[in-house]
Amino acid sequence: MTPGRRFRIYLLEARFQFVEVLREPMFAIPTLAFPLIFYLFFGVIMGTRGVSLAVPTYVLATYGVFGVLGPALFGFGAGLANERDTGVLLLKQTTPMPAGAYLFAKVMAALIFGAVVVAALFLMAAHAAGVALYRWQWFALAGVLLAGVIPFCALGLAIGAWARGRSAVAVVNLVFLPMAMLSGLWLPIYMFPDVMQDIALALPAYHHAQLALKVIAMDAGQPVPTHLAVLVAETLAFLAVAALGFRRADSFSMRRSR
Protein backbone atom coordinates (compact mmCIF):
# COMPACT_ATOMS: atom_id res chain seq x y z
CA MET A 1 0.00 0.00 0.00
CA THR A 2 1.40 3.39 -0.94
CA PRO A 3 1.99 5.86 1.92
CA GLY A 4 -0.39 8.30 0.22
CA ARG A 5 -3.27 5.85 0.19
CA ARG A 6 -2.52 4.71 3.72
CA PHE A 7 -2.61 8.34 4.85
CA ARG A 8 -5.90 8.88 3.06
CA ILE A 9 -7.46 5.83 4.76
CA TYR A 10 -6.32 7.06 8.18
CA LEU A 11 -7.75 10.48 7.46
CA LEU A 12 -11.11 9.29 6.11
CA GLU A 13 -11.53 6.73 8.85
CA ALA A 14 -10.92 9.45 11.45
CA ARG A 15 -13.21 11.91 9.71
CA PHE A 16 -16.12 9.48 9.50
CA GLN A 17 -15.55 8.24 13.03
CA PHE A 18 -15.85 11.84 14.19
CA VAL A 19 -18.94 12.57 12.08
CA GLU A 20 -20.57 9.34 13.20
CA VAL A 21 -20.16 10.11 16.88
CA LEU A 22 -21.13 13.75 16.42
CA ARG A 23 -24.47 12.63 14.99
CA GLU A 24 -25.17 10.39 17.98
CA PRO A 25 -27.11 12.32 20.61
CA MET A 26 -26.54 9.55 23.17
CA PHE A 27 -22.87 10.37 22.91
CA ALA A 28 -22.83 14.10 22.29
CA ILE A 29 -25.07 15.11 25.20
CA PRO A 30 -23.30 13.45 28.15
CA THR A 31 -19.79 13.96 26.87
CA LEU A 32 -20.02 17.48 25.43
CA ALA A 33 -22.86 19.09 27.35
CA PHE A 34 -22.30 17.78 30.88
CA PRO A 35 -18.86 19.30 31.54
CA LEU A 36 -19.98 22.64 30.09
CA ILE A 37 -23.24 22.72 32.06
CA PHE A 38 -21.36 21.75 35.23
CA TYR A 39 -18.86 24.53 34.63
CA LEU A 40 -21.57 27.05 33.94
CA PHE A 41 -23.28 26.16 37.18
CA PHE A 42 -20.43 25.43 39.62
CA GLY A 43 -17.73 27.54 37.98
CA VAL A 44 -19.48 30.58 36.61
CA ILE A 45 -22.70 30.97 38.62
CA MET A 46 -21.78 29.55 42.05
CA GLY A 47 -18.01 29.91 41.86
CA THR A 48 -17.84 33.64 41.26
CA ARG A 49 -19.92 34.65 44.30
CA GLY A 50 -16.98 34.80 46.68
CA VAL A 51 -14.00 37.10 46.55
CA SER A 52 -11.58 34.41 45.40
CA LEU A 53 -11.54 32.78 41.98
CA ALA A 54 -10.27 29.52 43.49
CA VAL A 55 -13.37 27.49 42.66
CA PRO A 56 -13.72 28.45 38.97
CA THR A 57 -9.98 27.94 38.53
CA TYR A 58 -9.95 24.56 40.27
CA VAL A 59 -12.94 23.16 38.41
CA LEU A 60 -11.57 24.42 35.10
CA ALA A 61 -8.79 21.86 35.46
CA THR A 62 -10.93 19.03 36.86
CA TYR A 63 -13.90 19.47 34.48
CA GLY A 64 -11.31 19.54 31.73
CA VAL A 65 -10.22 16.05 32.83
CA PHE A 66 -13.89 15.05 32.91
CA GLY A 67 -14.33 16.45 29.40
CA VAL A 68 -11.43 14.41 28.01
CA LEU A 69 -12.42 11.26 29.90
CA GLY A 70 -15.97 11.10 28.49
CA PRO A 71 -15.21 10.89 24.76
CA ALA A 72 -12.40 8.39 25.39
CA LEU A 73 -14.63 6.05 27.37
CA PHE A 74 -17.89 6.46 25.42
CA GLY A 75 -16.51 6.87 21.91
CA PHE A 76 -13.68 4.41 22.23
CA GLY A 77 -14.91 1.90 24.80
CA ALA A 78 -18.61 1.71 24.10
CA GLY A 79 -18.11 2.42 20.38
CA LEU A 80 -15.61 -0.39 19.95
CA ALA A 81 -17.77 -2.87 21.85
CA ASN A 82 -20.74 -1.93 19.69
CA GLU A 83 -18.83 -2.30 16.42
CA ARG A 84 -17.51 -5.69 17.46
CA ASP A 85 -21.03 -6.75 18.32
CA THR A 86 -22.69 -5.59 15.11
CA GLY A 87 -19.93 -7.12 12.98
CA VAL A 88 -18.66 -3.87 11.42
CA LEU A 89 -15.20 -4.65 12.68
CA LEU A 90 -15.39 -8.17 11.24
CA LEU A 91 -16.37 -6.75 7.86
CA LYS A 92 -13.60 -4.14 7.89
CA GLN A 93 -11.07 -6.81 8.81
CA THR A 94 -11.81 -8.58 5.52
CA THR A 95 -10.91 -5.40 3.60
CA PRO A 96 -7.40 -3.96 3.12
CA MET A 97 -8.08 -1.36 5.84
CA PRO A 98 -4.99 -1.23 8.09
CA ALA A 99 -5.96 -2.09 11.68
CA GLY A 100 -3.99 0.97 12.78
CA ALA A 101 -6.35 3.25 10.87
CA TYR A 102 -9.27 2.03 12.94
CA LEU A 103 -7.55 2.67 16.27
CA PHE A 104 -6.10 5.97 15.03
CA ALA A 105 -9.59 7.11 14.05
CA LYS A 106 -11.00 6.33 17.48
CA VAL A 107 -8.15 8.11 19.28
CA MET A 108 -8.42 11.14 16.99
CA ALA A 109 -12.17 11.40 17.49
CA ALA A 110 -11.68 11.28 21.28
CA LEU A 111 -8.92 13.89 21.01
CA ILE A 112 -10.99 16.27 18.89
CA PHE A 113 -14.05 15.98 21.15
CA GLY A 114 -11.81 16.48 24.17
CA ALA A 115 -10.28 19.55 22.53
CA VAL A 116 -13.71 21.03 21.80
CA VAL A 117 -14.76 20.63 25.45
CA VAL A 118 -11.46 22.05 26.74
CA ALA A 119 -11.68 25.04 24.37
CA ALA A 120 -15.25 25.76 25.43
CA LEU A 121 -14.32 25.48 29.11
CA PHE A 122 -11.41 27.88 28.59
CA LEU A 123 -13.66 30.43 26.90
CA MET A 124 -16.20 30.24 29.72
CA ALA A 125 -13.48 30.43 32.36
CA ALA A 126 -11.71 33.43 30.84
CA HIS A 127 -14.73 35.44 29.74
CA ALA A 128 -17.60 34.46 32.02
CA ALA A 129 -15.90 33.45 35.27
CA GLY A 130 -12.98 35.86 35.02
CA VAL A 131 -10.30 33.23 35.61
CA ALA A 132 -6.89 34.78 34.99
CA LEU A 133 -3.92 32.56 34.20
CA TYR A 134 -0.53 33.25 32.66
CA ARG A 135 -0.37 32.54 28.99
CA TRP A 136 1.98 29.56 29.56
CA GLN A 137 -0.51 28.15 32.05
CA TRP A 138 -3.33 28.16 29.51
CA PHE A 139 -1.13 26.29 27.03
CA ALA A 140 0.31 23.91 29.58
CA LEU A 141 -3.13 23.16 30.99
CA ALA A 142 -4.52 22.45 27.52
CA GLY A 143 -1.55 20.19 26.73
CA VAL A 144 -1.83 18.22 29.98
CA LEU A 145 -5.59 17.81 29.62
CA LEU A 146 -5.42 16.56 26.03
CA ALA A 147 -2.59 14.14 26.83
CA GLY A 148 -5.12 12.40 29.08
CA VAL A 149 -6.60 10.95 25.89
CA ILE A 150 -3.79 8.35 25.96
CA PRO A 151 -4.47 6.62 29.29
CA PHE A 152 -8.24 7.09 28.96
CA CYS A 153 -8.36 5.62 25.45
CA ALA A 154 -6.31 2.68 26.72
CA LEU A 155 -8.95 2.20 29.43
CA GLY A 156 -11.69 2.50 26.79
CA LEU A 157 -9.90 -0.11 24.67
CA ALA A 158 -9.76 -2.50 27.63
CA ILE A 159 -13.49 -2.07 28.29
CA GLY A 160 -14.31 -2.41 24.58
CA ALA A 161 -12.26 -5.59 24.35
CA TRP A 162 -14.16 -7.31 27.15
CA ALA A 163 -17.68 -5.88 27.29
CA ARG A 164 -20.24 -6.76 24.65
CA GLY A 165 -22.55 -4.38 22.82
CA ARG A 166 -25.04 -2.58 24.99
CA SER A 167 -23.60 -3.83 28.25
CA ALA A 168 -20.49 -1.81 27.40
CA VAL A 169 -22.43 1.43 27.85
CA ALA A 170 -23.43 0.27 31.33
CA VAL A 171 -19.84 -0.67 32.16
CA VAL A 172 -18.60 2.69 30.90
CA ASN A 173 -21.14 4.51 33.06
CA LEU A 174 -20.09 2.43 36.07
CA VAL A 175 -16.50 3.49 35.47
CA PHE A 176 -17.06 7.05 34.27
CA LEU A 177 -19.15 8.68 37.00
CA PRO A 178 -17.70 6.95 40.11
CA MET A 179 -14.16 7.49 38.86
CA ALA A 180 -14.90 11.16 38.18
CA MET A 181 -16.21 11.63 41.68
CA LEU A 182 -13.56 9.57 43.52
CA SER A 183 -10.77 11.26 41.58
CA GLY A 184 -11.84 14.66 42.93
CA LEU A 185 -13.12 15.99 39.63
CA TRP A 186 -16.21 17.50 41.25
CA LEU A 187 -15.01 18.13 44.81
CA PRO A 188 -11.37 18.10 46.02
CA ILE A 189 -10.63 14.74 47.59
CA TYR A 190 -9.41 16.22 50.89
CA MET A 191 -13.10 16.76 51.60
CA PHE A 192 -13.65 12.96 51.44
CA PRO A 193 -13.13 10.31 54.18
CA ASP A 194 -9.66 8.69 54.26
CA VAL A 195 -10.84 5.45 52.62
CA MET A 196 -12.09 7.31 49.59
CA GLN A 197 -8.87 9.28 49.39
CA ASP A 198 -6.95 6.00 49.31
CA ILE A 199 -9.10 4.76 46.43
CA ALA A 200 -8.33 7.94 44.50
CA LEU A 201 -4.62 7.09 44.55
CA ALA A 202 -5.36 4.06 42.35
CA LEU A 203 -7.37 5.94 39.73
CA PRO A 204 -5.85 7.30 36.51
CA ALA A 205 -8.22 10.28 36.48
CA TYR A 206 -6.94 11.32 39.92
CA HIS A 207 -3.32 11.39 38.76
CA HIS A 208 -4.23 13.11 35.54
CA ALA A 209 -6.21 15.73 37.44
CA GLN A 210 -3.30 16.27 39.82
CA LEU A 211 -1.02 16.98 36.85
CA ALA A 212 -3.55 19.46 35.49
CA LEU A 213 -3.92 21.11 38.92
CA LYS A 214 -0.13 21.29 39.22
CA VAL A 215 -0.12 23.75 36.30
CA ILE A 216 -2.30 26.16 38.27
CA ALA A 217 -0.60 25.34 41.61
CA MET A 218 -3.73 23.80 43.16
CA ASP A 219 -2.64 20.17 43.36
CA ALA A 220 -2.28 18.07 46.52
CA GLY A 221 1.50 18.27 46.43
CA GLN A 222 2.62 14.84 45.27
CA PRO A 223 5.58 14.88 42.87
CA VAL A 224 5.02 14.89 39.10
CA PRO A 225 7.08 11.69 38.50
CA THR A 226 4.73 9.76 40.81
CA HIS A 227 1.70 10.77 38.78
CA LEU A 228 3.45 10.04 35.50
CA ALA A 229 4.69 6.65 36.70
CA VAL A 230 1.19 5.60 37.77
CA LEU A 231 -0.34 6.79 34.49
CA VAL A 232 2.25 4.99 32.35
CA ALA A 233 1.94 1.77 34.37
CA GLU A 234 -1.86 1.86 34.22
CA THR A 235 -1.86 2.61 30.49
CA LEU A 236 0.34 -0.44 29.88
CA ALA A 237 -1.89 -2.54 32.13
CA PHE A 238 -5.02 -1.44 30.21
CA LEU A 239 -3.36 -2.31 26.90
CA ALA A 240 -2.42 -5.75 28.22
CA VAL A 241 -5.97 -6.35 29.47
CA ALA A 242 -7.27 -5.27 26.05
CA ALA A 243 -4.90 -7.64 24.24
CA LEU A 244 -6.09 -10.51 26.44
CA GLY A 245 -9.69 -9.62 25.69
CA PHE A 246 -9.10 -9.63 21.93
CA ARG A 247 -7.27 -12.94 22.07
CA ARG A 248 -10.11 -14.51 24.02
CA ALA A 249 -12.68 -13.06 21.60
CA ASP A 250 -10.82 -14.54 18.60
CA SER A 251 -11.58 -18.05 19.68
CA PHE A 252 -15.23 -17.33 20.41
CA SER A 253 -16.28 -14.64 17.97
CA MET A 254 -17.84 -16.89 15.33
CA ARG A 255 -19.71 -19.01 17.76
CA ARG A 256 -22.91 -17.07 17.76
CA SER A 257 -23.17 -16.59 14.00
CA ARG A 258 -22.26 -20.03 12.75
Binding site: F16, E20, D85, T86, V88
Partner: peptide, 15 residues
Protein backbone atom coordinates in the same frame (compact mmCIF):
# COMPACT_ATOMS: atom_id res chain seq x y z
CA UNK B 1 -8.78 -8.62 -4.93
CA UNK B 2 -11.67 -9.91 -2.86
CA UNK B 3 -14.95 -8.52 -1.59
CA UNK B 4 -17.34 -9.85 1.00
CA UNK B 5 -20.89 -9.44 2.16
CA UNK B 6 -21.22 -10.93 5.64
CA UNK B 7 -24.14 -11.74 7.89
CA UNK B 8 -23.69 -8.79 10.20
CA UNK B 9 -26.34 -6.79 11.96
CA UNK B 10 -25.34 -3.50 10.41
CA UNK B 11 -22.84 -0.74 9.86
CA UNK B 12 -22.90 2.72 11.37
CA UNK B 13 -26.47 4.01 11.37
CA UNK B 14 -25.32 7.63 11.48
CA UNK B 15 -23.33 7.72 8.24
Amino acid sequence: RRGAMLQISGISANL
